[in-house]
Design a protein around this nucleic acid. Structure first.
Lengths: 321, 321
DNA sequence: GTGTCAATTTGACTTTTGTCGAGAGCCGTG
DNA sequence: CACGGCTCTCGACAAAAGTCAAATTGACAC
């Protein structure tokens, strides 16, 4: 019988195996199929998120360093990926941790804002599947016109797919050529609606970009390296969802920001849980800017970066009083 | 080195294996231990709840029968354990499902009320481990003086142990000989505090007892079969947390209820999620009584019982208009 | 009818995992 | 300091799970 085995069989096999603790051959005889099929169904069950295998990220917050950072920075929670005994490379380790943390923070019924970039896409890519109900994933900023590897819509859709959620894409370019056009587009009902819905999110996933010639926004063509150079001289310190922020974490008053279609920082701050993930050690300054702006509540970083942050906070603390 | 490998190693092994997807031998070489040890740590990780393997109970609510029951009874959610292709026996199947559902409903930070009885204890016994933070499990009624297999405190403690939660026991007998003594005891600060804390629970797990000579409360010696006989004549229809309810689901006006140390039904109804589990088909009448009293919001039953409930609701519906 | 196609299933094989008893280090005790 | 008792660890074997190419099946078009 080559009838589509439907979710029914997958679910049943998963139930017998994982919930009742039967062995695969026992499941096979219960369902009158071969053990090989059972093995296949179980793989599908894991890939679909019908079964969920998660490991506690407790240890990574229990770290003394993490606790001290939480206090020093006034964050809800900090996770630190240890960098001594890493598995593949520090960046991947951080992404794996971030994916677990993210899945731990998602609740059914949630509305989730997702930014973009290499970090976010890496997380999406290694994230395991979940079968959450009534979850919506919304794109936080416009798209890139040119085809590029880690596009905002790709990040959004991939995460939505993994969570078995609805993905809400942004059908607008990230950056326009004139401010007037950007204003006009923002006023469009479809766009306006999406932008105003961002504040209703329960959770947000993002990273922060650098403001040098290697920056993501430069490489993807949203800005030339010359423009970036000028912006940096004007006080640019980081990039959040396509927008330039200064070292205080406020949106920089510049033409680029006025030509961008993206969630404004005010709306982002209205989101209860804002998970920021930083992989590269080179993102120290941008990270500081984002923290200064109170843009994140939950943070995942590597051990090295964590130490730098704490040293910085300690030094600043000592200078202040 | 026979130093206690602490949670540290267990956690690390679990992380590499489950989050990073390494094989056991790879984990072993990473941690410089034998693969056999890795296998052992992983088992411990599962037993501790450091890793969590859960399977969606979606299918059991998606059932048409379940949906119709939700509507007919006005419940938030109904799960039906299919009884045709059962694994061990219907009762165990129901308990396995109930345990999964229960774990799905628990959130960290929750306060959970737990009643007692064979059903509750069975669920506790097969429930997998979880590593939840800040969870408190409170006992909903007093204890039995005589040693008995499914004691209230055992149910509470076992569930607390599985969830890695704090267990709050009731240091009072379930039923006293005089009403006066019961009143006095209820007024005791320790007891009063515990009783008044019940309404603050987020979740409650309970079953309902029968009111015949085979009843749990009779077998454990809280009531003689003669007393039970009289209570039944007086309108007793079921038992909830040691208290007798009538067919409308209200506390029966009787001496026994006045001599019992237990959460009053009003407090129970203040709990947001009230999960009731019924294993035996013989509990049809008690179940109806509990439903009539609006005592549960979430229900787990077997297919046969579900069908009877729906037939009953349908018949009642037809008679009414 | 019957040929084609894609999906599903399976048996046989390989790899991975679970388990057990033996051994080794640690500690308090006599 | 020798002695069990204890826990942790490991090697080797047995059991279970993963994988793949080949076979079967039903649907559909001709």
């Amino acid at each position: 019988m080559a009838i589509r085995p439907a979710e029914q069989l997958i679910h049943k096999a998963a139930w017998l195996y994982y919930a009742h603790g039967l062995r695969q051959d026992q499941v096979a005889s219960q369902l009158n199929i071969s053990r090989a099929s059972v093995a296949m169904y179980l793989r599908k069950a894991r890939e679909t998120g019908i079964v969920n295998i998660s490991t506690s990220t407790q240890l990574f917050t229990d770290d003394v360093l993490a606790r001290r950072l939480e206090d020093a920075l006034g964050l809800d929670s900090v996770w630190i990926a240890p960098e001594n005994a890493y598995v593949v490379d520090p960046a991947t380790d951080i992404a794996v941790l971030a994916a677990s943390v993210f899945l731990e923070l998602v609740k059914k019924g949630d509305r989730i804002g997702v930014a973009w970039g290499r970090t976010v896409y890496t997380i999406a890519d290694i994230m395991s599947y979940a079968d959450l109900q009534d979850v919506t994933v919304v794109q936080l900023c416009g798209n890139l016109g040119a085809p590029y590897s880690y596009r905002p819509d790709q990040c959004t859709m991939e995460i939505a797919r993994r969570l078995n959620a609805k993905g809400l894409n942004f059908y607008a370019p990230l950056v326009l050529t004139t401010e007037e056009l950007a204003r006009g587009l923002r006023a469009e009902p479809v766009i306006r609606e999406q932008l105003s819905g961002i504040g209703d999110c329960d959770l947000m996933l993002f990273s922060v970009g650098t403001v040098d010639a290697d920056s993501h926004v430069v490489k993807c063509g949203a800005l030339t390296s010359g423009e970036m150079e000028m912006l940096r001289k004007a006080g640019a310190a980081g990039v959040i969802a396509g927008q330039i922020i200064d070292s205080a974490g406020a949106a920089l008053d510049c033409s680029h920001n006025r030509r961008v279609i993206s969630a404004d920082l005010q709306s982002l701050r209205a989101i209860e849980k804002r998970l920021m993930v930083v992989q590269e050690d080179s993102k120290f300054e941008p990270l500081l800017a984002a923290l200064a702006g109170g843009l994140c509540t939950h943070l995942v970083v590597g051990a090295q970066m964590a130490q730098r942050l704490l040293d910085h906070a300690g030094a600043a603390g000592k200078n202040a009083p």
